Simulated assay, not measured.
Amino acid sequence: MVTGPMMKEKAPYFAKDLDVGDFKASNGWLQSFLWRHNISFGVMSGENGEVKPHVVDEWNGKLPDMCKDYDPKDIFNMDESGLFYRSTVSKSFHVKGETYSGGKLSKERLTVSFCSSMTGEKEPIVVIGKSANPRCFQKVPASSLPVHYYHNKKAWMTGSIFEDWLKKFDRKMTRQGCRVLMFLDNAPSHPKLSLKNVTLQFLPLNTTSKSQPMDQGIIQAVKLKYRRRQLQHIFANMTRHNLLSGSELLKQISVLDVIYWVNRAWDQVETDTIVKCFAAAEFLKPGPVALQPEQPDADDEDDDEDYEEDDVPLQVIRLSMDLFGVGFADAGRD
């Protein structure tokens, strides 16, 4: 498969070989190159029910009353998502009109769960794998990891895992003297529990794409940042080990690599992104919050170009363009 970041990563090497000076593999260059050569971006061959607008509107009308007794910093959303951690994307650039296919995509999957407040306070992420003690954990005990690590045969969120994590969260809020309202979707793995300092509020069925803050761009932002690190790792090692292909290097990515990469990606999601995603889900808009500056990434570059898509934070759109060479809505999703 061929993606935008792959082309931008390799273009300077070709420019150097061709003695092309002052070359910059920008998004503008990429778009012009694709247009000149008639190249498009598409899915290689190889959750949501229908959203009812009136249900969403009715829910949005009830939100202010649900939230009125809670400070914005005490209103949380939690959701999990699958991460096919040894795959890149399911889309590739190809010449228009030609059929194409890629190699077999890796199905190795982890479940990653994210939780934050509507003012941007982030809880440590939950990672669910298949093995209790992966080989890569030999020198790093699970208790020292920066995430909550769980396991089961299918690497899925289960009711017991959710209950264990939620009770830990409730004890933490109790110690801090916080009374919290937690919004969740109606997944079978999210049982209804009675807790001391955390009240659960479940979203209506088939509305998460509109009503769940995590689905308005927060999880996608984490995945895009993770993919950036994954691709940087592949290219760096392809340079060092010329005999190894990208697919061979993907197979060498360990669960421990993923944990550190996705944790770093979560750390880099800005407060502003989270606040805007809660607002996009029609939650009460909090007062001014102190925005956390994004931690710099040595490989990040500022682009002069502006990319606009409705209801999606600009940071997410720019990252999607940089990583995939396409807008947020067209970027590959797990």
Rank of each mutant, 00 (worst) to 15 (best):
L181T: 07
K223E: 04
V180E: 00
N152A: 03
Q252R: 14
A221E: 03
F23D: 10
S45K: 13
K167D: 12
Y150V: 02
C136D: 15
A281M: 04
N263L: 01
K139P: 05
V326Q: 10
G332N: 07
K192P: 02
N27H: 15
Q220F: 05
K24V: 12
P53T: 13
D304M: 09
E47S: 07
T119M: 02
L193F: 10
G246H: 13
T99L: 11
G327L: 06
K154E: 14
R179W: 01
F169W: 15
L18K: 15
T271E: 01
E294A: 05
S101D: 14
M118N: 02
R264K: 12
P53R: 10
M1G: 02
E58I: 08
D69L: 12
R171S: 13
S116M: 00
A331Y: 07
L105N: 09
G177N: 09
G177R: 09
N197A: 08
S194L: 06
H190P: 04
G246A: 13
A15C: 02
F33C: 11
K68I: 04
E270C: 10
V275W: 01
I317A: 03
Q31A: 09
L63G: 00
A281R: 11
H37N: 15
Q220M: 13
S106A: 09
S101W: 14
G103F: 15
S160P: 03
Q292M: 13
Q220R: 13
H94I: 10
R171G: 07
K139Q: 07
K251G: 10
Y70D: 07
P288D: 12
S92A: 13
R179G: 04
G159I: 06
T119F: 00
N186C: 13
F324R: 03
D272E: 15
Y226T: 12
P213E: 02
G177D: 11
P296C: 13
W59K: 09
K73W: 10
